[in-house]
Design a protein around this nucleic acid. Sequence first.
DNA 1: TAGATTGTTAATCGATTAACAATC
DNA 2: TAGATTGTTAATCGATTAACAATC
Lengths: 214, 214
Amino acid sequence: MPKRENISMSVIRRLPRYYRFLKHLRSKGVVRISSTELSAKLGLTASQIRQDLNCFGGFGQQGYGYMVDQLCEEIAHILGLSNGYKTILLGAGNLGQAIASHMSFEDDGFNLIGIFDSAPQKIGKTVNGLTVQDIASLEEFCQADMPSMAVLCVPREASAVLVERLYNIGVRNFWNFSHYDIIMKYPDALVENVHLSDSLMTLCYKISNTPDAS
Amino acid sequence: MPKRENISMSVIRRLPRYYRFLKHLRSKGVVRISSTELSAKLGLTASQIRQDLNCFGGFGQQGYGYMVDQLCEEIAHILGLSNGYKTILLGAGNLGQAIASHMSFEDDGFNLIGIFDSAPQKIGKTVNGLTVQDIASLEEFCQADMPSMAVLCVPREASAVLVERLYNIGVRNFWNFSHYDIIMKYPDALVENVHLSDSLMTLCYKISNTPDAS
DNA sequence: TAGATTGTTAATCGATTAACAATC
DNA sequence: TAGATTGTTAATCGATTAACAATC
Protein backbone atom coordinates (compact mmCIF):
# COMPACT_ATOMS: atom_id res chain seq x y z
CA MET A 1 0.00 0.00 0.00
CA PRO A 2 1.22 3.51 -0.82
CA LYS A 3 1.15 6.28 1.82
CA ARG A 4 -1.06 5.36 4.76
CA GLU A 5 0.72 6.00 7.99
CA ASN A 6 -0.64 7.59 11.10
CA ILE A 7 -4.00 8.35 9.57
CA SER A 8 -6.07 9.90 12.31
CA MET A 9 -9.36 8.39 13.44
CA SER A 10 -11.05 11.69 12.60
CA VAL A 11 -10.30 10.99 8.97
CA ILE A 12 -11.21 7.29 9.14
CA ARG A 13 -14.58 8.01 10.69
CA ARG A 14 -15.51 10.22 7.75
CA LEU A 15 -14.74 7.54 5.16
CA PRO A 16 -17.89 5.46 5.71
CA ARG A 17 -19.94 8.61 5.26
CA TYR A 18 -18.20 9.42 1.98
CA TYR A 19 -18.65 5.82 0.93
CA ARG A 20 -22.37 5.75 1.69
CA PHE A 21 -22.96 9.00 -0.12
CA LEU A 22 -20.94 7.98 -3.16
CA LYS A 23 -22.84 4.70 -3.40
CA HIS A 24 -26.03 6.74 -3.27
CA LEU A 25 -24.80 9.01 -6.07
CA ARG A 26 -23.73 6.05 -8.15
CA SER A 27 -27.13 4.44 -7.76
CA LYS A 28 -28.64 7.64 -9.10
CA GLY A 29 -26.34 7.45 -12.12
CA VAL A 30 -24.00 10.29 -11.18
CA VAL A 31 -20.63 9.72 -12.85
CA ARG A 32 -18.49 12.65 -11.79
CA ILE A 33 -18.35 14.90 -8.71
CA SER A 34 -16.07 17.70 -7.48
CA SER A 35 -14.94 18.17 -3.92
CA THR A 36 -16.97 21.38 -3.83
CA GLU A 37 -20.20 19.63 -4.80
CA LEU A 38 -19.52 16.83 -2.32
CA SER A 39 -18.79 19.29 0.46
CA ALA A 40 -22.08 21.11 -0.11
CA LYS A 41 -24.07 17.87 0.03
CA LEU A 42 -22.29 16.59 3.12
CA GLY A 43 -21.96 19.82 5.05
CA LEU A 44 -18.16 19.76 5.11
CA THR A 45 -15.47 21.91 3.50
CA ALA A 46 -14.08 20.97 0.10
CA SER A 47 -10.63 21.38 1.57
CA GLN A 48 -11.29 18.76 4.20
CA ILE A 49 -12.56 16.25 1.67
CA ARG A 50 -9.52 16.67 -0.56
CA GLN A 51 -7.23 16.53 2.47
CA ASP A 52 -8.92 13.34 3.67
CA LEU A 53 -8.76 11.57 0.34
CA ASN A 54 -5.16 12.55 -0.22
CA CYS A 55 -4.14 10.63 2.88
CA PHE A 56 -4.61 7.55 0.72
CA GLY A 57 -3.70 8.75 -2.73
CA GLY A 58 -4.64 11.10 -5.53
CA PHE A 59 -7.96 9.74 -6.71
CA GLY A 60 -9.07 12.85 -8.57
CA GLN A 61 -8.18 14.63 -11.75
CA GLN A 62 -7.27 18.32 -11.83
CA GLY A 63 -9.85 20.42 -13.59
CA TYR A 64 -12.34 17.57 -13.60
CA GLY A 65 -13.06 16.16 -10.15
CA TYR A 66 -13.57 12.58 -9.02
CA MET A 67 -15.14 9.61 -10.83
CA VAL A 68 -17.93 8.52 -8.50
CA ASP A 69 -17.60 4.82 -9.19
CA GLN A 70 -13.83 4.77 -8.96
CA LEU A 71 -13.75 6.76 -5.71
CA CYS A 72 -16.40 4.48 -4.27
CA GLU A 73 -14.28 1.43 -5.02
CA GLU A 74 -11.14 3.07 -3.67
CA ILE A 75 -12.80 3.83 -0.35
CA ALA A 76 -14.30 0.34 -0.15
CA HIS A 77 -10.78 -0.97 -0.66
CA ILE A 78 -9.25 1.33 1.95
CA LEU A 79 -11.86 0.23 4.48
CA GLY A 80 -11.33 -3.40 3.56
CA LEU A 81 -15.01 -4.02 2.89
CA SER A 82 -14.46 -7.09 0.74
CA ASN A 83 -12.56 -8.96 3.43
CA GLY A 84 -15.63 -10.74 4.80
CA TYR A 85 -14.13 -11.38 8.22
CA LYS A 86 -15.76 -14.37 9.87
CA THR A 87 -17.87 -13.11 12.72
CA ILE A 88 -19.86 -14.53 15.62
CA LEU A 89 -22.52 -12.74 17.61
CA LEU A 90 -23.00 -13.24 21.33
CA GLY A 91 -26.44 -12.57 22.78
CA ALA A 92 -29.60 -13.28 20.79
CA GLY A 93 -31.85 -10.82 22.58
CA ASN A 94 -33.68 -7.99 20.88
CA LEU A 95 -30.52 -6.11 20.09
CA GLY A 96 -28.58 -9.18 19.01
CA GLN A 97 -31.33 -10.16 16.60
CA ALA A 98 -31.51 -6.65 15.21
CA ILE A 99 -27.75 -6.55 14.65
CA ALA A 100 -27.77 -10.01 13.11
CA SER A 101 -30.30 -9.00 10.51
CA HIS A 102 -28.48 -5.72 9.97
CA MET A 103 -25.24 -7.56 9.22
CA SER A 104 -26.95 -9.75 6.67
CA PHE A 105 -28.16 -6.83 4.55
CA GLU A 106 -25.10 -4.69 4.48
CA ASP A 107 -21.83 -5.37 2.80
CA ASP A 108 -19.66 -4.04 5.56
CA GLY A 109 -16.72 -6.39 5.41
CA PHE A 110 -18.01 -9.07 7.78
CA ASN A 111 -19.62 -12.45 7.38
CA LEU A 112 -21.79 -13.64 10.26
CA ILE A 113 -21.22 -17.36 10.77
CA GLY A 114 -22.56 -18.04 14.26
CA ILE A 115 -24.93 -16.78 16.96
CA PHE A 116 -24.69 -17.82 20.60
CA ASP A 117 -26.80 -17.40 23.70
CA SER A 118 -27.05 -18.98 27.13
CA ALA A 119 -30.84 -18.90 27.57
CA PRO A 120 -32.50 -22.30 26.84
CA GLN A 121 -35.51 -20.60 25.24
CA LYS A 122 -33.22 -18.86 22.71
CA ILE A 123 -31.00 -21.84 21.84
CA GLY A 124 -32.17 -23.62 18.71
CA LYS A 125 -34.14 -20.64 17.47
CA THR A 126 -33.36 -19.47 13.94
CA VAL A 127 -32.19 -15.88 13.52
CA ASN A 128 -31.52 -14.72 10.00
CA GLY A 129 -30.80 -18.17 8.72
CA LEU A 130 -28.51 -19.12 11.61
CA THR A 131 -29.42 -21.42 14.47
CA VAL A 132 -28.72 -19.92 17.88
CA GLN A 133 -26.15 -22.14 19.59
CA ASP A 134 -25.48 -22.83 23.24
CA ILE A 135 -22.72 -20.59 24.52
CA ALA A 136 -21.24 -23.73 26.10
CA SER A 137 -20.19 -24.88 22.66
CA LEU A 138 -18.31 -21.66 21.89
CA GLU A 139 -14.79 -23.09 22.15
CA GLU A 140 -15.70 -26.17 20.13
CA PHE A 141 -17.24 -24.06 17.37
CA CYS A 142 -14.27 -21.71 17.23
CA GLN A 143 -11.77 -24.55 17.00
CA ALA A 144 -13.52 -25.77 13.88
CA ASP A 145 -14.23 -22.42 12.31
CA MET A 146 -12.13 -19.67 13.86
CA PRO A 147 -13.91 -16.29 13.70
CA SER A 148 -11.83 -13.12 13.65
CA MET A 149 -14.49 -10.81 15.08
CA ALA A 150 -17.07 -11.07 17.84
CA VAL A 151 -20.15 -8.88 18.33
CA LEU A 152 -21.10 -8.42 21.98
CA CYS A 153 -24.82 -7.98 22.58
CA VAL A 154 -24.88 -9.18 26.16
CA PRO A 155 -24.92 -7.30 29.49
CA ARG A 156 -21.78 -5.93 31.04
CA GLU A 157 -21.14 -8.79 33.48
CA ALA A 158 -21.63 -11.46 30.82
CA SER A 159 -19.23 -9.53 28.57
CA ALA A 160 -16.41 -9.67 31.12
CA VAL A 161 -16.54 -13.47 31.17
CA LEU A 162 -17.15 -13.86 27.46
CA VAL A 163 -14.37 -11.56 26.36
CA GLU A 164 -11.95 -13.55 28.48
CA ARG A 165 -13.07 -16.79 26.82
CA LEU A 166 -12.91 -15.24 23.37
CA TYR A 167 -9.50 -13.71 24.03
CA ASN A 168 -8.15 -17.08 25.15
CA ILE A 169 -9.47 -18.68 21.98
CA GLY A 170 -7.64 -16.01 19.98
CA VAL A 171 -10.35 -13.50 19.06
CA ARG A 172 -8.90 -9.97 19.14
CA ASN A 173 -11.51 -7.91 17.32
CA PHE A 174 -14.75 -6.80 18.92
CA TRP A 175 -17.86 -4.84 18.03
CA ASN A 176 -18.99 -4.03 21.53
CA PHE A 177 -22.54 -2.99 22.40
CA SER A 178 -22.04 -3.70 26.09
CA HIS A 179 -20.65 -1.33 28.69
CA TYR A 180 -17.74 -3.58 29.47
CA ASP A 181 -14.44 -1.80 28.82
CA ILE A 182 -12.48 -4.28 26.72
CA ILE A 183 -9.48 -2.07 25.98
CA MET A 184 -8.73 -1.40 29.66
CA LYS A 185 -8.45 -5.17 30.16
CA TYR A 186 -6.91 -6.18 26.82
CA PRO A 187 -4.93 -3.29 25.36
CA ASP A 188 -4.02 -5.24 22.24
CA ALA A 189 -7.63 -5.87 21.22
CA LEU A 190 -9.21 -3.88 18.40
CA VAL A 191 -12.54 -2.58 19.62
CA GLU A 192 -15.32 -0.50 18.21
CA ASN A 193 -17.74 0.50 20.94
CA VAL A 194 -21.38 1.38 20.31
CA HIS A 195 -22.79 2.90 23.44
CA LEU A 196 -26.41 3.59 22.62
CA SER A 197 -27.15 5.10 26.02
CA ASP A 198 -24.24 7.53 25.62
CA SER A 199 -25.69 8.64 22.32
CA LEU A 200 -29.09 9.10 23.92
CA MET A 201 -27.65 11.09 26.83
CA THR A 202 -25.80 13.31 24.39
CA LEU A 203 -29.08 14.01 22.62
CA CYS A 204 -30.66 14.74 25.98
CA TYR A 205 -27.95 17.31 26.64
CA LYS A 206 -28.49 18.96 23.27
CA ILE A 207 -32.22 19.24 23.86
CA SER A 208 -31.85 20.39 27.46
CA ASN A 209 -29.26 23.02 26.60
CA THR A 210 -30.67 24.58 23.46
CA PRO A 211 -32.56 27.84 24.02
CA ASP A 212 -35.73 27.21 22.00
CA ALA A 213 -35.97 23.43 22.49
CA SER A 214 -39.15 22.14 24.07
CA MET B 1 -27.12 28.07 35.09
CA PRO B 2 -23.58 29.28 35.80
CA LYS B 3 -20.87 29.12 33.12
CA ARG B 4 -21.89 26.89 30.24
CA GLU B 5 -21.27 28.62 26.99
CA ASN B 6 -19.72 27.19 23.87
CA ILE B 7 -19.02 23.86 25.46
CA SER B 8 -17.54 21.71 22.71
CA MET B 9 -19.14 18.44 21.66
CA SER B 10 -15.84 16.71 22.48
CA VAL B 11 -16.47 17.54 26.12
CA ILE B 12 -20.17 16.68 26.03
CA ARG B 13 -19.53 13.27 24.51
CA ARG B 14 -17.29 12.35 27.43
CA LEU B 15 -19.90 13.21 30.06
CA PRO B 16 -22.04 10.07 29.58
CA ARG B 17 -18.92 7.99 30.02
CA TYR B 18 -18.03 9.77 33.25
CA TYR B 19 -21.61 9.38 34.39
CA ARG B 20 -21.75 5.66 33.68
CA PHE B 21 -18.48 5.04 35.44
CA LEU B 22 -19.40 7.14 38.48
CA LYS B 23 -22.71 5.28 38.79
CA HIS B 24 -20.72 2.06 38.66
CA LEU B 25 -18.38 3.31 41.40
CA ARG B 26 -21.30 4.46 43.53
CA SER B 27 -22.96 1.07 43.22
CA LYS B 28 -19.74 -0.46 44.52
CA GLY B 29 -19.86 1.88 47.52
CA VAL B 30 -16.99 4.19 46.48
CA VAL B 31 -17.49 7.58 48.12
CA ARG B 32 -14.55 9.67 46.95
CA ILE B 33 -12.35 9.73 43.84
CA SER B 34 -9.55 11.93 42.55
CA SER B 35 -9.14 13.00 38.96
CA THR B 36 -5.95 10.93 38.83
CA GLU B 37 -7.72 7.74 39.88
CA LEU B 38 -10.56 8.42 37.45
CA SER B 39 -8.14 9.07 34.62
CA ALA B 40 -6.36 5.77 35.21
CA LYS B 41 -9.63 3.83 35.15
CA LEU B 42 -10.93 5.57 32.05
CA GLY B 43 -7.73 5.82 30.06
CA LEU B 44 -7.74 9.61 29.94
CA THR B 45 -5.54 12.29 31.47
CA ALA B 46 -6.40 13.75 34.87
CA SER B 47 -5.96 17.16 33.35
CA GLN B 48 -8.64 16.51 30.77
CA ILE B 49 -11.13 15.31 33.35
CA ARG B 50 -10.62 18.39 35.53
CA GLN B 51 -10.77 20.62 32.48
CA ASP B 52 -13.99 18.95 31.34
CA LEU B 53 -15.72 19.20 34.70
CA ASN B 54 -14.67 22.80 35.18
CA CYS B 55 -16.63 23.78 32.10
CA PHE B 56 -19.66 23.39 34.32
CA GLY B 57 -18.40 24.37 37.74
CA GLY B 58 -15.99 23.43 40.50
CA PHE B 59 -17.40 20.16 41.77
CA GLY B 60 -14.28 19.02 43.58
CA GLN B 61 -12.43 19.96 46.71
CA GLN B 62 -8.74 20.80 46.72
CA GLY B 63 -6.64 18.24 48.49
CA TYR B 64 -9.55 15.78 48.58
CA GLY B 65 -11.00 15.03 45.18
CA TYR B 66 -14.61 14.54 44.13
CA MET B 67 -17.56 13.05 46.01
CA VAL B 68 -18.74 10.24 43.73
CA ASP B 69 -22.42 10.63 44.50
CA GLN B 70 -22.42 14.40 44.19
CA LEU B 71 -20.49 14.39 40.92
CA CYS B 72 -22.82 11.75 39.56
CA GLU B 73 -25.83 13.91 40.33
CA GLU B 74 -24.18 17.01 38.90
CA ILE B 75 -23.49 15.29 35.58
CA ALA B 76 -27.01 13.84 35.47
CA HIS B 77 -28.26 17.37 35.96
CA ILE B 78 -25.99 18.84 33.27
CA LEU B 79 -27.17 16.18 30.81
CA GLY B 80 -30.80 16.78 31.78
CA LEU B 81 -31.43 13.12 32.52
CA SER B 82 -34.45 13.75 34.72
CA ASN B 83 -36.35 15.61 32.04
CA GLY B 84 -38.19 12.55 30.75
CA TYR B 85 -38.88 14.00 27.31
CA LYS B 86 -41.92 12.39 25.75
CA THR B 87 -40.73 10.21 22.91
CA ILE B 88 -42.22 8.20 20.08
CA LEU B 89 -40.51 5.47 18.10
CA LEU B 90 -41.07 4.93 14.39
CA GLY B 91 -40.48 1.47 12.99
CA ALA B 92 -41.19 -1.65 15.04
CA GLY B 93 -38.79 -3.97 13.24
CA ASN B 94 -35.95 -5.81 14.94
CA LEU B 95 -34.01 -2.66 15.63
CA GLY B 96 -37.05 -0.66 16.75
CA GLN B 97 -38.02 -3.35 19.20
CA ALA B 98 -34.47 -3.55 20.54
CA ILE B 99 -34.32 0.19 21.04
CA ALA B 100 -37.78 0.25 22.64
CA SER B 101 -36.74 -2.25 25.27
CA HIS B 102 -33.42 -0.47 25.71
CA MET B 103 -35.20 2.81 26.44
CA SER B 104 -37.37 1.15 29.05
CA PHE B 105 -34.44 -0.04 31.15
CA GLU B 106 -32.26 2.96 31.16
CA ASP B 107 -32.89 6.29 32.75
CA ASP B 108 -31.55 8.39 29.93
CA GLY B 109 -33.86 11.38 30.05
CA PHE B 110 -36.60 10.10 27.77
CA ASN B 111 -40.00 8.55 28.26
CA LEU B 112 -41.26 6.35 25.45
CA ILE B 113 -45.00 6.95 24.99
CA GLY B 114 -45.76 5.54 21.53
CA ILE B 115 -44.56 3.13 18.85
CA PHE B 116 -45.66 3.31 15.22
CA ASP B 117 -45.32 1.15 12.15
CA SER B 118 -46.97 0.87 8.76
CA ALA B 119 -46.93 -2.93 8.37
CA PRO B 120 -50.33 -4.52 9.18
CA GLN B 121 -48.65 -7.53 10.81
CA LYS B 122 -46.86 -5.23 13.26
CA ILE B 123 -49.77 -2.96 14.15
CA GLY B 124 -51.52 -4.05 17.33
CA LYS B 125 -48.55 -6.04 18.56
CA THR B 126 -47.31 -5.23 22.05
CA VAL B 127 -43.70 -4.09 22.39
CA ASN B 128 -42.47 -3.39 25.89
CA GLY B 129 -45.89 -2.60 27.20
CA LEU B 130 -46.85 -0.33 24.31
CA THR B 131 -49.21 -1.27 21.49
CA VAL B 132 -47.76 -0.64 18.04
CA GLN B 133 -49.98 1.92 16.34
CA ASP B 134 -50.72 2.55 12.68
CA ILE B 135 -48.47 5.26 11.31
CA ALA B 136 -51.63 6.73 9.76
CA SER B 137 -52.72 7.87 13.22
CA LEU B 138 -49.45 9.72 13.89
CA GLU B 139 -50.84 13.25 13.60
CA GLU B 140 -53.90 12.42 15.69
CA PHE B 141 -51.77 10.91 18.44
CA CYS B 142 -49.38 13.85 18.49
CA GLN B 143 -52.18 16.39 18.73
CA ALA B 144 -53.37 14.70 21.90
CA ASP B 145 -49.99 13.99 23.43
CA MET B 146 -47.24 16.01 21.80
CA PRO B 147 -43.88 14.20 21.92
CA SER B 148 -40.68 16.23 21.88
CA MET B 149 -38.44 13.52 20.46
CA ALA B 150 -38.78 10.89 17.74
CA VAL B 151 -36.64 7.78 17.26
CA LEU B 152 -36.23 6.78 13.63
CA CYS B 153 -35.85 3.04 13.09
CA VAL B 154 -37.13 2.94 9.52
CA PRO B 155 -35.31 2.81 6.17
CA ARG B 156 -33.92 5.92 4.53
CA GLU B 157 -36.81 6.56 2.15
CA ALA B 158 -39.44 6.14 4.85
CA SER B 159 -37.45 8.56 7.02
CA ALA B 160 -37.61 11.31 4.44
CA VAL B 161 -41.40 11.24 4.46
CA LEU B 162 -41.74 10.69 8.19
CA VAL B 163 -39.37 13.47 9.20
CA GLU B 164 -41.38 15.88 7.08
CA ARG B 165 -44.60 14.83 8.81
CA LEU B 166 -42.99 15.02 12.22
CA TYR B 167 -41.44 18.39 11.48
CA ASN B 168 -44.80 19.77 10.39
CA ILE B 169 -46.35 18.53 13.62
CA GLY B 170 -43.63 20.36 15.53
CA VAL B 171 -41.14 17.64 16.45
CA ARG B 172 -37.60 19.04 16.29
CA ASN B 173 -35.54 16.42 18.11
CA PHE B 174 -34.49 13.13 16.54
CA TRP B 175 -32.56 10.03 17.45
CA ASN B 176 -31.81 8.83 13.97
CA PHE B 177 -30.84 5.25 13.13
CA SER B 178 -31.60 5.71 9.44
CA HIS B 179 -29.26 7.02 6.78
CA TYR B 180 -31.50 9.94 5.98
CA ASP B 181 -29.66 13.22 6.56
CA ILE B 182 -32.08 15.25 8.68
CA ILE B 183 -29.82 18.25 9.32
CA MET B 184 -29.21 18.90 5.62
CA LYS B 185 -32.98 19.24 5.17
CA TYR B 186 -33.91 20.84 8.51
CA PRO B 187 -30.97 22.80 9.90
CA ASP B 188 -32.87 23.80 13.04
CA ALA B 189 -33.51 20.22 14.12
CA LEU B 190 -31.49 18.65 16.93
CA VAL B 191 -30.26 15.29 15.74
CA GLU B 192 -28.19 12.51 17.16
CA ASN B 193 -27.26 10.03 14.44
CA VAL B 194 -26.41 6.40 15.12
CA HIS B 195 -24.96 4.91 11.99
CA LEU B 196 -24.30 1.29 12.85
CA SER B 197 -22.86 0.48 9.46
CA ASP B 198 -20.38 3.37 9.76
CA SER B 199 -19.24 1.96 13.07
CA LEU B 200 -18.85 -1.47 11.53
CA MET B 201 -16.90 -0.12 8.56
CA THR B 202 -14.60 1.75 10.93
CA LEU B 203 -13.93 -1.50 12.75
CA CYS B 204 -13.27 -3.15 9.40
CA TYR B 205 -10.68 -0.48 8.65
CA LYS B 206 -8.97 -0.98 12.00
CA ILE B 207 -8.75 -4.73 11.47
CA SER B 208 -7.65 -4.46 7.85
CA ASN B 209 -4.97 -1.88 8.61
CA THR B 210 -3.38 -3.25 11.76
CA PRO B 211 -0.15 -5.17 11.18
CA ASP B 212 -0.80 -8.31 13.25
CA ALA B 213 -4.58 -8.50 12.83
CA SER B 214 -5.95 -11.67 11.33
C1' DT C 1 -5.31 27.24 -24.89
C1' DA C 2 -8.31 28.78 -21.00
C1' DG C 3 -10.99 27.21 -17.24
C1' DA C 4 -11.58 24.30 -13.65
C1' DT C 5 -10.36 21.62 -9.93
C1' DT C 6 -7.09 18.86 -7.76
C1' DG C 7 -2.99 17.99 -4.57
C1' DT C 8 -0.31 20.06 -1.17
C1' DT C 9 1.78 23.49 1.69
C1' DA C 10 1.06 27.15 5.02
C1' DA C 11 -1.99 29.49 8.40
C1' DT C 12 -5.50 29.16 11.67
C1' DC C 13 -8.14 27.29 14.92
C1' DG C 14 -9.46 24.25 18.65
C1' DA C 15 -8.56 20.59 21.84
C1' DT C 16 -5.43 18.31 24.88
C1' DT C 17 -1.74 18.31 28.09
C1' DA C 18 1.41 20.35 31.36
C1' DA C 19 2.34 23.22 35.09
C1' DC C 20 1.49 25.44 39.20
C1' DA C 21 -0.73 28.61 42.33
C1' DA C 22 -4.84 28.35 45.23
C1' DT C 23 -6.81 26.04 48.94
C1' DC C 24 -8.98 22.39 51.45
C1' DT D 1 0.56 22.92 59.56
C1' DA D 2 1.92 19.75 55.70
C1' DG D 3 0.21 17.05 52.03
C1' DA D 4 -2.78 16.45 48.51
C1' DT D 5 -5.50 17.64 44.83
C1' DT D 6 -8.23 20.90 42.65
C1' DG D 7 -9.10 24.98 39.42
C1' DT D 8 -7.06 27.54 35.93
C1' DT D 9 -3.65 29.53 32.98
C1' DA D 10 -0.05 28.66 29.60
C1' DA D 11 2.20 25.53 26.25
C1' DT D 12 1.74 21.99 23.03
C1' DC D 13 -0.23 19.30 19.87
C1' DG D 14 -3.36 17.99 16.21
C1' DA D 15 -7.06 18.90 13.07
C1' DT D 16 -9.32 22.02 9.99
C1' DT D 17 -9.31 25.65 6.73
C1' DA D 18 -7.26 28.72 3.39
C1' DA D 19 -4.45 29.53 -0.42
C1' DC D 20 -2.31 28.58 -4.55
C1' DA D 21 0.77 26.24 -7.72
C1' DA D 22 0.36 22.08 -10.53
C1' DT D 23 -2.05 20.10 -14.20
C1' DC D 24 -5.78 17.92 -16.61
